Amino acid sequence: MGHIGKRIAKSREGIDRVKLYPVAEAVKLVKERATAKFDETIEIAMNLGVDPKHADQMVRGVVNLPNGTGRTVRVAVFARGAKADEAKAAGADVVGAEELVTTVQGGTIDFDRCIATPDMMPLVGRLGKVLGPRGLMPNPKVGTVTMDITAAVKASKGGAVEFRVEKAGIIQGSVGKVSFEEGKLLENIAAFVDAVAKAKPQGAKGTYIQRVAISSTMGPGVKVDPGTVMS
Score class of each variant (00 low, 15 high):
Met1Gln: 10
Met1Pro: 14
Met1Trp: 09
Met1Cys: 12
Ile4Thr: 15
Ala9Leu: 07
Gly14Phe: 07
Lys19Ala: 14
Lys19His: 11
Tyr21Gly: 07
Val23Asp: 10
Val23Gly: 09
Val23Ile: 13
Val23Leu: 05
Glu25Lys: 11
Val27Thr: 06
Leu29Lys: 06
Glu32Pro: 09
Glu32Val: 04
Arg33Asp: 04
Ala34Phe: 02
Ala36Ser: 15
Ala36Leu: 02
Lys37Gln: 05
Phe38Trp: 07
Asp39Asn: 13
Thr41Arg: 00
Glu43Trp: 05
Glu43Asn: 10
Met46Lys: 12
Met46Trp: 12
Asn47Val: 15
Gly49Leu: 04
Asp51His: 11
Asp51Glu: 13
Lys53Tyr: 04
Gln57Ala: 06
Met58Val: 14
Met58Phe: 08
Val59Leu: 01
Val59Ser: 00
Arg60Ile: 12
Arg60Tyr: 07
Gly61Cys: 03
Val63Ala: 01
Gly70Ser: 02
Gly70His: 04
Arg71Glu: 04
Thr72Ala: 11
Thr72Gln: 12
Thr72Trp: 08
Thr72Lys: 14
Val75Phe: 06
Val75Ser: 00
Ala76Asp: 05
Val77Thr: 05
Val77Met: 06
Ala79Asp: 08
Arg80Asn: 15
Ala87Glu: 00
Ala90Asp: 12
Ala90Ser: 12
Gly91Tyr: 05
Gly91His: 01
Gly91Lys: 02
Ala97Asp: 15
Glu99Ile: 06
Thr102Glu: 14
Thr103Lys: 14
Val104Asn: 01
Val104Leu: 06
Gln105Lys: 15
Gly107Leu: 03
Gly107Asp: 08
Thr108Lys: 15
Ile109Leu: 12
Ile109Lys: 10
Asp112Gln: 01
Cys114Gly: 07
Ala116Tyr: 11
Thr117Trp: 03
Met121Glu: 00
Lys129Ala: 14
Leu131Gln: 09
Gly132Leu: 11
Arg134His: 08
Gly135Asp: 09
Gly135Ser: 10
Asn139Gly: 07
Gly143Glu: 03
Thr144Asn: 09
Val145Tyr: 00
Val145Gln: 05
Thr150Tyr: 04
Ala151Cys: 03
Ala151Tyr: 01
Ala152His: 04
Ala152Glu: 01
Ala152Thr: 02
Lys154Arg: 09
Ala155Ser: 14
Ser156Glu: 14
Lys157Gln: 12
Gly158Gln: 11
Gly159Thr: 12
Ala160Lys: 15
Arg164Glu: 08
Gly169Glu: 09
Gln172Cys: 08
Gly173Ala: 10
Gly176Ala: 08
Val178Asn: 01
Ser179Gln: 03
Ser179Cys: 06
Leu186Trp: 05
Glu187Val: 00
Glu187Gln: 09
Asn188Met: 06
Asn188Lys: 07
Ile189Glu: 03
Ala190Tyr: 04
Val193Arg: 02
Asp194Leu: 08
Asp194Tyr: 04
Ala195Pro: 02
Lys198Asn: 02
Ala199Trp: 06
Lys200Asn: 04
Lys200Thr: 02
Pro201Arg: 05
Gln202Val: 15
Gly203Pro: 10
Ala204Met: 01
Lys205Val: 10
Gly206His: 04
Tyr208Met: 02
Tyr208Arg: 00
Ile214Val: 04
Gly219Gln: 12
Pro220Lys: 07
Pro220Trp: 04
Gly221Asn: 15
Lys223Gln: 11
Gly227Lys: 13
Gly227Gln: 08
Gly227Asp: 15
Met230Gln: 13
